[in-house]
Amino acid sequence: MTPRFAAGTQVLVKNDWPEERGPCHIRTPHYLRGRPGRVERVLGAFRNPEDLAFARPAETRVLYHVEFDQPGIFPDGQTPDKLLVEIFEHWLEAA
């Protein structure tokens, strides 16, 4: 499975809210939706938890470690602090 984004790529977490469309299981935290980040590294490929949670056939998706500047996410964030979060490829777009 070829990752779409290489380490160092600037990305944007999709500003999508499946919670508003019906029952779902999402591993992308609310506080990161629509936020810019940077791919730290490719972690591997794992079966999509959004389907696994409902016992549906689940495709394998690439999982990334993505780094975010903390002050941009939370007003009480402090430079140079960061957040490092696992995000699946289908939640990322090129920035």
Binding site: R27, T28, P29, Y31, L43, G44, F46, P49, L63, E67, Q70, I73, F74, D76, G77, Q78, P80, D81, K82, L83, L84, V85, E86, I87, F88
Partner: peptide, 29 residues
Amino acid sequence: VREPRAVMAEWGSELPDDIELRVVDSTAD
């Protein structure tokens, strides 16, 4: 995720300002 330095201080560890604190949110696999 909001105020990690304050939480660490309550645990008795003050982190110097010039050290980057990276909070790792373990969200997936």
